[in-house]
């Protein structure tokens, strides 16, 4: 009896302490800008890695890691560099995924990708006669079904995967759901394009702990969401080759960090100078340049002008191979097969 009473009292004390602590924690974000962020753990709990052994850390890092380099001795026709222009047609998908009741103005910002951004980009690519890879969340394609035939029209471009609705995979954190959404997207594009897509780019470039397995299971040729090198490489998982080609991306070669709503440097002139420097070194080193754009970001008038100028600059050099990511992945896989 007495023991029970003590247990109960301890329980009450603990519960009220918890209430006080959690109320204090909730008060804090009201002044902080990021009111939606969960309270961060403190001390050693905030740095789980410091208590792990080196072996444990190696294991943790090994889930998805760079394997062998796949840059061939030479690119097709003796070209010096491979250039892939890639466009993530996110449009409204991310907003529709995140918000339970998305508002008209931000939705219209994404809608612009379909009404103006993509048509302007396609006209420019036609004009320059260069191919590109388009990564499309299936929902974006379904909301503006004229986009897929427009991309297919020239016969130059690739259509590849970018999630069902630009879902954030680490946030989803659910292997079965992730697989369901990927398969749903593969099915959608197989039906609408007449060809099963071979390439994957994760929403926000964020792979979950399950993604490598999910991609391998789906039998995809390549992924383009990782950043371990400037050139193509084979993805390794837990020490083993996966057979998946990685065509790496980089924030430096993306439009969103500069132009996005919290963009750091919205001067197209200065940004395209960064891309140009990236290209010049890629050319010198004989590897690959992967640029990532978004029609609702770079499809705007003041930006497309500079994109076309950059393409003209690259075309002016001898030995630049403009290709889709699929073509690059097939080429590196085939020319480097069995070389290790």
């Amino acid at each position: 009896m007495r023991r029970n009473t003590i247990i109960v009292i301890v329980g009450v004390v603990a519960a009220s302490a918890w209430v006080i602590v959690s109320r204090a924690q909730q008060r804090r974000p009201q002044t902080a800008a990021a009111s939606s962020a969960a309270p961060a753990p403190e001390g050693a709990a905030a740095l789980p890695g410091i208590t792990r052994s080196l072996d444990e850390l190696k294991q943790t890092a090994a889930r998805a890691r760079a394997g062998r380099k796949l840059t061939p001795k030479t690119w097709p026709n003796g070209s010096k560099v491979a250039v892939c222009l890639s466009f993530d047609i996110d449009n409204e998908s991310g907003l529709l995924a995140r918000e339970s009741n998305p508002l008209p103005t931000p939705l219209s910002e994404g809608e612009y990708g379909a009404t103006e951004g993509l048509p302007r980009i396609l006209a420019m690519l036609d004009h320059e006669h260069v191919p590109a890879s388009f990564y499309i969340p299936a929902v974006s394609a379904a909301l503006a079904p004229e986009m897929v035939p427009a991309i297919q029209k020239s016969g130059l471009h690739e259509i590849a995967l970018h999630g069902w609705i630009h879902e954030s995979l680490p946030t989803l954190n659910n292997a079965a759901e992730e697989e369901r959404l990927l398969n749903q997207a593969i099915e959608y594009f197989t039906k609408t394009t007449g060809k099963r897509p071979v390439g994957n780019r994760a929403g926000g470039w964020a792979l979950s702990h399950y993604s490598v397995d999910v991609i391998r299971k789906a039998g995809l040729l390549y992924d383009s969401s990782m950043m371990a090198m400037d050139e193509p490489y084979e993805l390794m998982s837990n020490g083993g080759d996966t057979g998946i080609v990685e065509l790496p991306v980089e924030w430096i070669q993306d439009d969103a960090p500069y132009f996005g709503r919290t963009g750091a440097l919205p001067s197209p002139e200065l940004i395209f100078r960064v891309y140009q420097d990236e290209f010049d070194i890629a050319y010198k080193e004989g590897t690959m340049l992967m640029l990532t754009f978004h029609p609702h970001v770079s499809g705007h008038r003041s930006r497309i002008v500079h994109l076309e100028k950059l393409i003209d600059y690259m075309k002016a050099k001898p030995g630049v191979w403009f290709a889709t990511a699929e073509e690059i992945a097939r080429y590196v896989k085939q020319t480097t097969a069995g070389t290790h």
């Binding site: 909730q26 939606s36 995924a97 995140r98 918000e99 929902v139 609705i165 879902e167 989803l172 954190n173």
Partner: peptide, 16 residues
């Protein structure tokens, strides 16, 4: 707060 309540899993991305 809403963000915390919805943290983790598919709840965070209702559209999915």
């Amino acid at each position: 707060v809403r963000g915390q309540q919805m943290a983790g899993g598919a709840q965070n991305q209702p559209g999915a």
